[in-house]
């Protein structure tokens, strides 16, 4: 009997035009990868929504809707979790530290209706946040555990 040697973690890299609409292609690509790794259906839905929001932030904020730029996504499978990194060109620094605003203030017109993306992401995946990127752009990482105890 031979033991399976620990091989390097499987990963995919995806690069899409920085343009609204292309996050839909990214979410289908990453969902296929997650299913491949055995991620269950509802978690795949969480991942798809979280990834879309991260891509939209990269397109609208990080790349400031400048045309001709790209959004790069790396998705790595580990034993118990999936890690996704979304990178933009950093036209604008986007630390994403805006306060979370409840729906009541939005309805009263006291806060913009937009700006829910990061809140949704943080509730849908297990870990999410911006990480250091020596190459200059914003780098957003999200982690999804396959099974939560």
């Amino acid at each position: 009997m031979t033991l399976q040697m620990a091989t390097s973690n499987p990963f995919i890299e995806l690069s899409v035009p920085s343009e609204l609409g292309y996050e839909k292609i990214a979410r289908d690509a990453v969902a296929a990868f997650a299913r491949r790794l055995g991620c269950d259906r509802e978690r795949v839905e969480d991942l798809k929504t979280a990834l879309s929001e991260a891509c939209i932030n990269a397109i609208e904020h990080g790349n400031a809707s400048v045309s001709g730029l790209r959004v790069d996504i790396q998705c790595t499978g580990m034993v118990d979790r999936l890690m996704v990194e979304v990178r933009d060109y950093g036209v604008r620094r986007y630390p994403g530290d805006m306060p979370v605003v409840g729906i009541d203030l939005k309805l009263q017109g006291l806060a913009p209706r937009r700006g829910m993306g990061l809140m949704m992401i943080s509730q849908l995946v297990d870990e999410a946040g911006f990480t250091e990127n020596t190459e200059g752009g914003n780098r957003f990482r999200l982690v999804l555990y396959f099974r939560r105890s």
Binding site: I12, A29, A32
Partner: peptide, 23 residues
């Protein structure tokens, strides 16, 4: 508008390419 996808050379990952292209 170009989409680039890089995959491991392991059977099964062709599904990621199939789903991305059909999307």
């Amino acid at each position: 508008r170009v989409i680039e996808l890089r995959l491991p050379s392991k059977l099964g990952y062709e599904k990621v390419a199939m789903d991305t292209a059909s999307s």
